[in-house]
């Protein structure tokens, strides 16, 4: 009898609808309005790569040791270096990083002995061309400059 009444009065359906109803208040809104409201990513977020420069003298921190290129599973980093005869040290000339093949695993970052290569909190990596995904040393030092859409 009770079951029949429950069936007739759709108790099971109203039970579910009551849950939905409880979340009608605007304070339960969970959606982020993405381009207008930028999400805050974690401090350890692995996003766009950056080649750090020494803030004191503006020189690159990279010592062209090639460890990042060796650590990368996709072999997408190419480090170009030249021997400076005056200081008898290897110096960085070019640095190419193909973000289109990168899976942001962080192995290159771990391998770097001087913390020159770093994966930053930038996450907007889309470009209009395939070539735009291949970053040279200048882009890496400046960081990405994605188009900011205002709304």
């Amino acid at each position: 009898m009770r079951n029949l009444l429950k069936k007739i009065f759709l108790v099971d359906l109203f039970q579910g609808l009551w849950v939905t109803f409880r979340y009608q208040h605007p304070r339960n809104i969970y959606t982020e309005q993405y381009p207008a409201e930028r999400p805050k990513v974690a401090e350890r977020y692995r996003g766009a790569p950056r080649l750090n420069i020494n803030p004191d003298n503006g020189e690159t921190l990279c010592i062209a040791c090639n460890l990042c290129a060796l650590a990368c599973p996709e072999a997408l980093i190419v480090v170009g270096s030249e021997r400076n005869e005056a200081t008898r040290r290897k110096e960085l000339t070019t640095f190419t990083y193909d973000t289109s093949r990168c899976m942001f695993c962080g192995l290159c970052e771990d391998a770097c002995p001087v913390d020159a290569l770093e994966l930053t909190q930038d996450f907007e990596l889309a470009t209009y061309t395939r070539e735009g995904q291949i970053w040279d040393r200048q882009t890496l030092e400046e960081g990405p400059r994605p188009t900011q859409y205002k709304c």
């Binding site: 979340y23 969970y30 990513v41 974690a42 977020y45 692995r46 695993c105 962080g106 994966l119």
Partner: peptide, 29 residues
Amino acid sequence: ITPVFYCLREREEALKIFENYCGARLTTH
């Protein structure tokens, strides 16, 4: 249709912990 919204909302909280811990949400390494 309703459960998927609620499930993804709670999943988001779990993914936030992953992101805070290791820096990635899905393919975490």
